[in-house]
Structure formats: C-alpha cells, structure tokens
Amino acid sequence: MKGIEVELLKLIENNANLEVEKIAKLLGKSIDEIQELIDRLEKKKVILGYSTLIDWAKVLDVEEVTAMVDVKVTPARGVGFDKVAERIYRFPEVKAVYLMSGAYDLSVSVKGNTMTEIGHFISEKLSTLDSVLSTTTHFVLKRYKHDGIILQDSDEDDKRIVVSP
C-alpha cells in the first residue's frame, strides 16, 4: 500500500471524526483526492466501519459485563478452526474471536448486561457446541486501557509554559 494510504488510515484509526477537509490539509492533498481514497478503501473493505470508543462505566443507567472466554475446541478436517469459529462469532453477544497459540484455541470476548446473562450464554450456547471441549471464563473487573486509549481520568493538561524560545 502506498505511504499516503497508510498515513490516512493511521490518522482516522485514531480519530474517525476527522473531517475530509482537515485530512486533506494534513496530508497535503486535495479534498477530492482524499474522498476518492477513502471511498476506495471502504470498497476494498480496508476501512470496515467507524466506531466510537465509549467508557460505559461512566454511563450510570447502563450495566455492562464483559467476559474473556478461553475455549478449547476440536478442529475439523478440511476447515481447521474456521468452521467452529464461525459458529461462535455469529452470535451477537460475541464481540471478538481470536485463534490463539498456547494452552487453548479460541479467545472469545462476550458482552452482556449481567453476569447471569453471560453465564447463560456460555452454558447454553457456547459449551454445548459439539466441537467445544472446555471453556474457562474470566470476567473483566475494570478497563484501564482499550485499543490504545487510556480510560482512566488523568491530568492531560498542557504543562508547557505559554511562550518559550
């Protein structure tokens, strides 16, 4: 991929809210060029969507629980882990699925409103799948950093003096 594409992607990966006009100025290109580039990257499914990172812990009336589930599975001939992974990632409760090296096979991140809800999903849906051998569930207690963003309130004020040589 060309340097300009990577630069653009890095920019909007960190801030999907950046207007095309600003991106164009930052990268020294015309607005049309940038719009075209974005359209192309969307079409090629390099850009898959634009989401917002929200600290739900601060939204009082919304309860949200996340669990990371280590899943051991039996891979199937011809399709390896892909088939069972698909069976799992199609569930809307499942927010992420990764094939892992090491002690277990799939790392599955599950989101729900309560622990009971997640427990229900794991015992009824996930662990009952034929190819699933075992599951180990870890509930997330606190999020410190997510996708490169620190979620703690810290003093990010500019500490520089106003004018310096």
């Binding site: 500019d158 520089r160 003096i161 106003v162 004018v163 310096s164 040589p165």
Partner: peptide
C-alpha cells in the same frame, strides 16, 4: 532582556490562551 520574556508575562496572565508560542514539543 529577551523579547520573548515580555511576551510570556503578557500571555501568562490570560485565560483560555491557545499558544503557538511554545518552542518545544507538545
């Protein structure tokens, strides 16, 4: 005295200043 110093004194008294006067990384 450095011309910057005088300017610093002026700017330091004000609120909500966006500074493009800083000779160091953000």
């Amino acid at each position: 005295p450095s011309g910057i110093r005088r300017f610093f004194d002026l700017a330091a008294q004000m609120e909500d200043v966006i500074s493009l006067g800083v000779g160091e990384p953000d």
